[in-house]
Design a protein around this nucleic acid. Structure first.
Length: 416
RNA sequence: GCGCCAUUGGUGAAGUGGUUAACACGCCGGAUUGUGGCUCCGGUAUGCAAGAGUUCGAUCCUCUUAUGACGCCCCA
């Protein structure tokens, strides 16, 4: 037996319907915010991800799906959405003559070669959006607003934005140095991973699960104090705007993104104060480092699968159509043929309609009616068919009546 | 890449080194000769993830592999 690959899953039935609903809500809201739907390829040149994430990071080397195609090109399955969108932006030279921001959203499968665990699969769906061209805090606020309100709209109540600023490159570098200087004397007291992080990616020490409660980290310098004037003003202005928009936020100096391309705003959206729902930030250098003209940008992304799961756990009701309009019963050949005709007719008149496909007995077709939760059932009888009438029965009231076949669509139009 | 636990019909699952692998749901058939949802009766795994080993004998013990759950690393 061939089974699905590690870290992948099939989505069907009720789960698929829930996803469709959620996607729909997100798509509609994105559209209202002026973000246009974009699809980019599942695979790209490996170099795109190397360059976007930084060649030194072992992320790309270890955690992307890499392969050589038949033309000996280095290809990777996309591990996230931003790089592909930026590549699109640069390739089409959309940075030229920007009068308004370019805003797009996507909802697509991503691939990471990781050991599956809670909330992490090798294939997963990410919903995200990017705004190019504005370096003003209104665009940061818009992105945060869209992300924040998307969760609200889906029914999550206790949603909060955890926000921080990394400042510009200069501020960020200064802080990094200060952080390392502060931590170095305590190096022996840190966990083994943090000893290594101190060399490779010191900002990540702030995220450490083991040292998180360590007193050393309680007094760690805060990046806010290392922002230069411009960065600080910008951050204050953004927070002001979030107040005006009545977005619930909290400054969290431990929010740092793992990658170098972020600057200024970084944020996460959390549920019940801790459960991460999605994350985003500003990345003013990425367009340029991927070969375009320097263009400011800000974006957000979240794991769709995770959100579906959380909505489930929070017992948030998702409206799902779990009934059909009509089930048509018939047993003789003539009855079944008539059932086929009527089923097609009703479907083409936008009613959902089913009939037996399993050569079931009349009695078992009734059971199918209940399984499918049909609103109406039509009982076909050879004698009736001769006279062009059918028996239609309301499944709730159990009342049935005979109507002329030609009146069927009108009858359902007025009753459903 | 590392660690820990798990894997028994369509589903939820019990169970034991030794003949027919509980029970429940579902499904199928019958009581009901073409009007269902209730009830009752019957049928539903030559099979316990795959392979190898120990044993007179393995679903049960050992090893390997695969997959799943959860951690770690990493987190775009």
């Amino acid at each position: 037996m061939i089974i699905k690959q590690k870290g992948t899953y099939d989505i069907y039935g009720v789960d698929a319907k829930k996803r469709q609903y959620i996607k729909n809500v997100l798509d509609t809201l994105s559209d209202k915010y002026g973000y246009g739907f974009i699809e980019t390829p599942v695979f790209e040149a490996t170099e795109l991800f190397h360059r976007s994430v930084g060649d030194e990071s072992d992320i790309v080397k270890k955690e992307t799906y890499d392969f050589k195609d038949r033309g000996d090109r280095n290809i990777s399955l996309r591990p996230e959405g931003t790089a592909g969108v930026v590549r699109w932006f640069v390739e089409n030279k959309l940075y030229g003559n920007l009068t308004d921001p370019v805003k797009v959203f996507y909802c697509e499968k991503m691939y990471r070669y990781e050991r599956p665990q809670s909330g992490r699969q090798r294939e997963f769906t990410q919903w995200g959006f990017e705004c190019f061209g504005s370096d003003f805090v209104e665009s940061d606020a818009e992105v945060i607003s869209l992300a924040y309100n998307a969760y609200k709209l889906l029914g999550l109540e206790n949603v909060k934005v955890k926000i921080n600023s990394l400042g510009d490159d200069e501020s960020r570098d200064n802080y990094r140095k200060a952080l390392v200087d502060y931590l170095k004397p305590y190096k022996d007291e840190l966990c083994d991973d943090c000893k290594r992080r101190l060399e490779t990616n010191p900002l990540r020490v702030l995220d450490c699960k083991i040292d998180g409660d360590n007193d050393i980290l309680k007094n760690v310098p805060k990046i806010i104090d290392y922002l230069n004037e411009e960065s600080k003003n910008r951050f204050d202005k953004l927070l002001e705007l979030l107040d005006l928009l009545e977005i619930d936020y909290e400054i969290d100096s431990n929010i740092v993104r793992g990658l170098d391309y972020y600057n200024y705003t970084v944020f996460e959206i959390v549920l019940n104060d801790s459960l991460a729902l999605g994350a985003g930030g500003r990345y003013n250098n990425l367009v340029e480092s991927l070969g375009g003209e320097s263009t400011p940008a800000v974006g957000f992304a979240m794991g769709l699968d995770r959100v579906v799961e959380i909505l489930d756990n929070e017992n948030i009701e998702i409206p799902i159509e779990d009934s059909i309009d009509v089930y048509i019963l018939g047993e003789s050949e003539n009855e079944r043929n008539t059932a086929s005709i009527l089923t097609q007719t009703l479907r083409l008149n936008s009613f959902s309609c089913e009939m037996d496909m399993m050569n079931k007995t009349f009695k078992n077709q009734f059971k199918a009616v209940d399984r499918m939760n049909a609103k109406y059932l039509i009982l076909l009888k050879d004698d009736d068919i001769k006279e062009n009438v059918i028996t239609i029965k309301d499944n709730k009231t159990r009342e049935e009546e005979k109507i002329s076949i030609v009146d069927l669509v009108d009858y359902l139009d007025t009753h459903i």
